[in-house]
Design a binder for these strands. Sequence first.
DNA 1: CGTCTATTTGAGTTAGCTCAACCGTCGTGG
DNA 2: CCACGACGGTTGAGCTAACTCAAATAGACG
Lengths: 228, 228
Amino acid sequence: MYVTLPVKAFESEITYQPNTLNDLANVNSQEMNFEPEESLFFEGDDADYIYEVVEGVVRSSKVLMDGRRQVLNFCYPGEMIGISHDRRYHCDCDAVSRVKVRLYRRNTSHGDVAKDPEFYARLLKNAAAEVNSMQEHFLMLGRKTAMEKLASFLVAVMNRQEHRRGQPIELELPMKRSDIADFLGMTIETVSRNLTKLRKLKVIELPNTHTVRICRAEELRSLAENAD
Amino acid sequence: MYVTLPVKAFESEITYQPNTLNDLANVNSQEMNFEPEESLFFEGDDADYIYEVVEGVVRSSKVLMDGRRQVLNFCYPGEMIGISHDRRYHCDCDAVSRVKVRLYRRNTSHGDVAKDPEFYARLLKNAAAEVNSMQEHFLMLGRKTAMEKLASFLVAVMNRQEHRRGQPIELELPMKRSDIADFLGMTIETVSRNLTKLRKLKVIELPNTHTVRICRAEELRSLAENAD
DNA sequence: CGTCTATTTGAGTTAGCTCAACCGTCGTGG
DNA sequence: CCACGACGGTTGAGCTAACTCAAATAGACG
């Protein structure tokens, strides 16, 4: 029945109850799991599904023929990916960590996503939010220094994740340095050097390579707009 | 009646006929004109209107406190700007040339844009297309050389505009060098130097500062992905 | 414990930046 | 009608932030 894209078998099938707050009415959805580095889809594939991240982190990216890569976004739980205007995906999409996603079928004879106005509204809001966040990312890519980029990235991850006031903030960065570098439009060496610099400035600590403890959040925020 | 945002008076008021192909059903819209460098809206303003460019070119941009600027997009006729997920604009928007725009009110008691499913669908498709084009822009900002950026820009303008096969292609570039520079994330000097370089390579001619004649389109396309 | 991969650090290079001079066009006023 | 100032664009010279290449180190995993 679902022969088109996701080659993996669906792990579960869920039908939402109509009119439940925060849920989508009358939309059939399935869940799927992916291991780190597994691909959800590739650029050029038929965009049969829209994905919602439920657990873990997903990375979308584009590559040039010579291998240069730009990471477009890291998607966290609650975020959607795979919306297309022309029935093709325009980026690659892979799991960074272990990932659970919910799939929404683009077009089916029954339970058609495109005919559900609430889902539509949600998609539009999501797309608008994505445009906004991409605009921030733009300013960063085009006009910020390496240090400002890295600080902005850490601030963005910090803002995305809940934390209790006053506490030193621990960020989990499941992605590799090369992912961060390709997201920020710089090299892994420059990422590494600037992390070290932040550590020496006592703005952060690095208990291990995938954890960043923010010691001076305000200092970091200020570095995100002005590299001194 | 329309006291909120656009301070300028509306030049005309149009009501679309329902069910006309390519038109929007039951949506009141107005048109407005802007002179070059006039602003349509600013970052942080209430996002009361969605704009569709009818004539001319519009520029959206973001600025850092110290004045560094990133141009996000140049909008050509048929494109929409001003969609927001949270009722605020997230970028500045200004006319590059003389511009005619059509305005759609975000929320009104009568003719509410948000309740018109066709308009919704159109907005969503537009937003998805914008995300796609921004993704291309990303790859460019983050990973391309100055020459590749400039060539990509010229190719994008070329693709956007109609032209008859075989003919040498003349592009009108109404924006200033500083706009191009801020769009590509480089300096005006680098833009200028690389235009000169393309001219010396006989890939383009520059009859005047705002016209580019593409002499070797294929060469240009190849430069857009590989600066040699 | 050894192998493999990711990350950090170091040293030298370079693409693109900054600063400065110059040029062309256009509009204004004597 | 011409002089001149303002503005946008081009070109040149030197500088520097980030890159490349290379080597050392640190985790991860069987």
